[in-house]
């Protein structure tokens, strides 16, 4: 079955334009950010000499893949697993938006389709839970702006359509596929203006924090070891 012109446009030209806009805005954003001068360290280094700015920066950047590194993730492993699955879902959905137009034969394998659906579906469920948490938790509500709710809702809906689009089957109509690609395009254009663009800033904030705390012997962090209970 051949795709319609609209679907072809949504899957190809629209994505290319959206990607171009995203790249342009990101470039402008980075130029803006790098126009601010970076603070530096004039003083002699402190702390353990087994650490260094380079080690600190590397540790800081890899921090996200080390749930044991921070107390906040160490003590909440389920939260970290959610985080990991959610972002794997984002990766899978983005990959899917390229696979469908450029390598559709990959999706002839039922296992691959299932893999996509599993990751994106899990992310969708986590998105629902995160929305519930953001709405029901007093503190989360207090720190949330409309952009936080909208970004999360956008991703969750996008995931839902990603799950449905993964088989790349238009025999029952193109509505799902067109919606998925439209959402993908909107997502790409909206990202640099929203909180979803945090992945662009993540390497920068973590690098500088790590470099500084590595220089001062704090990073890599020496994890607190809980003392054995003793009878006092």
């Amino acid at each position: 079955m051949h795709e319609s012109q609209l679907l072809h446009f949504a899957a190809h030209r629209l994505q290319e334009v959206a990607l171009l806009i995203m790249a342009t805005v990101y470039t402008i954003r980075l130029i803006w950010l790098f126009r601010f001068k970076a603070g530096g360290d004039r003083q002699g280094r402190t702390g353990r000499f087994s650490t260094s700015p380079q080690k600190g920066a590397l540790y800081s950047l890899a921090n996200i893949a080390m749930p044991w590194a921070m107390e906040s993730t160490r003590t909440k492993p389920v939260f970290w697993i959610q985080f990991a699955l959610f972002h794997l879902g984002v990766t899978a959905a983005i990959t899917l938006s390229f696979v469908i137009p450029y390598a559709p034969s990959v999706l002839n394998n039922g296992l691959v389709v299932f893999g996509f659906q599993a990751f994106i579906g899990a992310a969708c469920l986590i998105g629902c839970y995160r929305m519930y948490r953001r709405i029901s938790d007093k503190t989360m509500r207090a720190i949330s702006a409309p952009d936080d709710y909208f970004s999360l809702a956008l991703l969750t809906v996008w995931f839902a359509f990603g799950v449905l689009a993964a088989p790349n089957d238009i025999s029952n109509g193109e509505g799902i596929m067109i919606t998925f690609f439209m959402l993908t395009a909107f997502f790409l254009i909206y990202v640099p203006f929203s909180k979803i663009g945090h992945y662009l800033y993540y390497p920068i904030t973590r690098y500088y924090l790590g470099r500084s705390l590595g220089y001062r012997g704090v990073f890599p962090i020496q994890k607190s070891v809980k003392p054995q209970k003793v009878a006092h």
């Binding site: 950010l33 790098f34 601010f36 001068k37 970076a38 603070g39 989360m140 720190i143 949330s144 702006a145 936080d148 909180k195 945090h198 800033y201 993540y202 920068i204 904030t205 500088y208 924090l209 500084s212």
Partner: peptide, 14 residues
Amino acid sequence: LNRQMVGSMIACVH
């Protein structure tokens, strides 16, 4: 404002 400070201003995902 310096780069680190601006990073801390824009990177929070709440």
